[in-house]
């Protein structure tokens, strides 16, 4: 039993949360990171939703990797991911209707979140189930952490509250612009700059990742690697 959680697997998790944080380092899944992070609750909700779908799809893809023929790989992954997203959507509607309303159209759009298809393609289709699960946990928590940070900053500056609790609203006029579209771009831009700065300070060249990575979803980076 002990060798289920090995050091290697913990590394996979940590790698996803910090070193290869999907939003702040790999720059994947930008759309939801900008769109739903108007407050901490929504950021956390979206993050955990993606975590759920990522875990399920990574495990499913890893289990089925030997049965899925090469030619229909991408469509199969899309079907698998879309089903988990729909299941998530139905459960959110049933048990957390307020969150469902706040996230709205961005719930079905998890299907096209680059992180999920990218991990299925780059990791789960090559590794065993347990590793894939750990990778999903790492990446999912990394995503959740990033969204929670962005959401908290925007809520704090934009509304003066944090998770709905009044923090600075009493002595500082909230700047509503942080809750709007420009604030989203601005906060995420600054956060990425901070991460870049830290990587530079520690003497490492920041990774030349980026939205080109999205092509991973199409299986192109898969070959490029």
């Amino acid at each position: 039993m002990n060798n289920i959680i090995t050091k290697e697997r913990l590394d996979i998790v940590l790698n996803g949360v910090i070193k290869e944080n999907p939003v702040l380092v790999l720059l994947l899944g930008m759309c939801p990171s900008l769109a739903v992070t108007t407050n901490g609750v929504n950021g956390l909700g979206m993050g955990l939703s993606v975590l759920f779908v990522l875990c399920c799809s990574n495990v499913a893809v890893s289990l089925l990797k030997n049965f899925i023929p090469e030619q229909v790989r991408i469509p199969s992954y899309i079907v698998i991911i879309a089903s988990f997203v729909t299941i998530l959507g139905l459960f959110l509607k049933a048990y957390l209707p307020l969150l469902d309303k706040a996230l709205g159209i961005y719930i079905p759009l998890i299907v096209v979140n680059c992180i999920i298809l990218g991990r299925a393609e780059m990791f789960a289709s090559k590794r065993n189930v347990m590793d894939s699960f750990m990778d999903a946990i790492g990446m999912g928590f990394g995503f959740t952490l990033a969204l929670l940070i962005i959401g908290s900053i925007r809520e704090l500056l934009g509304a003066g509250t944090w998770f709905g609790l009044t923090v600075t609203a009493n002595f500082m006029e909230p700047m509503a612009i942080f809750m709007l579209a420009p604030g989203g771009f601005f906060v995420l831009g600054c956060l990425i700059a901070i991460v870049n700065g830290i990587t530079r300070y520690r003497g490492k060249q920041p990774e030349k990742a980026g939205c080109e990575g999205c092509s991973a979803c199409q299986g192109q980076t898969g070959e490029a690697e």
Partner: peptide
């Protein structure tokens, strides 16, 4: 541009200003 902001961060901040203009 300051080193840390080169690339995507600067682009995001420019996008923020463009979004403000569209508002």
């Amino acid at each position: 541009i300051p080193l840390a902001f080169r690339g995507i961060p600067a682009t995001m901040i420019a996008a923020s200003i463009l979004a403000m203009a569209f508002m």
